[in-house]
Design a protein around this nucleic acid. Structure first.
Lengths: 159, 159
DNA sequence: GTTGAAAATAGCACGAA
DNA sequence: TTCGTGCTATTTTCAAC
């Protein structure tokens, strides 16, 4: 009896990608709008094969979708900040809802430690940042660190 | 004398987008692989016009590119964490370099406050997380918060 | 910004390895 | 089961307006 490799459709969920899938994902990460033909050329396969692999990567949950990388500063959001948020006793769910409903919070993770939330905030000005933080002050304590620059731009880990 | 609106090609860099551009960017954010035809239909314009607007959004720096949203858990990175990093005296640049060269740090911002760096880390296991933090311990003090979940998935601020 | 034609591409069925 | 070929429909691109 030969050592069975799990069928491809079960390989997603915890495992690694094969060489070809990794190259496809990496190529799409640098330009998600590549045509299937270009993609196929860059990995040395036919377009239908690549197309099918992308479909499976999406179906398997590895690829959640394709998005645009917008420079928020270019549209007037001059200030970015990371805000740690500690709701007052009994206000955890209320505060989470307030964060979700404030669209200038562009991302928020629930984390371990003293502060349950860590959120990314973009605003047009310091005054506007103060307004947003002020609107939470009744229900939570916040610690804000303004972003001065970027050391590592969002990237994929090793595939 | 009529109140002059700045010409479109100078509008990027600090201003807001017009209604159509905002709809285009929002549509691309939810699916960056939409065809120009579909995009054109959704905003009620011809394909060449939409195509030209997208080209200008890229040239103007509003759109930096198109990326894929990968679920790192689906490829085995079970643990995500936010790590605050405070280099020891004189080691700021060395530490920044170490962060940049560790591909499991998938993002890192330079921030104000006691800890100069705030980095996002993805790892396969707690043991692997410890390895990464250990590799910095000679040059920096770290504070790690494991991500338990997400309150706000990365999204665009109001356009 | 729109239209229309030519080139490129995507999607499908089918056959080969 | 995965990949490649050939077909048709759709899309992209460019020109002219």
């Amino acid at each position: 009896m030969t050592k069975a490799r799990p069928p491809r459709h079960l390989q997603f969920g915890n495992s690694t990608l094969d060489e070809t899938d990794a190259r496809i994902v990496a190529a799409l990460d640098s330009d998600a709008r590549l045509s299937m033909s270009e993609l196929a050329r860059s990995v040395g396969m036919s377009a239908p094969s690549v197309s099918e692999r992308v479909r499976r990567l999406e179906a398997g949950g590895v690829v959640r979708g394709f998005t645009v990388d917008v420079d928020t500063r270019a549209i007037g959001y001059e200030i970015r900040a990371m805000v740690r948020i500690r709701p007052l006793p009994g206000k955890l769910h209320l505060v989470e809802k307030l964060i979700q409903e404030q669209p200038k919070f562009v991302e928020c993770d629930k984390i371990t430690g003293d502060d349950p939330f860590l959120a990314r905030l973009v605003v047009h000005s310091i005054e506007q940042m103060d307004d947003v933080l002020e609107s939470l002050s009744e229900h939570a304590v916040t610690s804000t660190a303004v972003i001065k620059g970027t050391s590592v731009k969002r990237r994929l880990p090793p595939l």
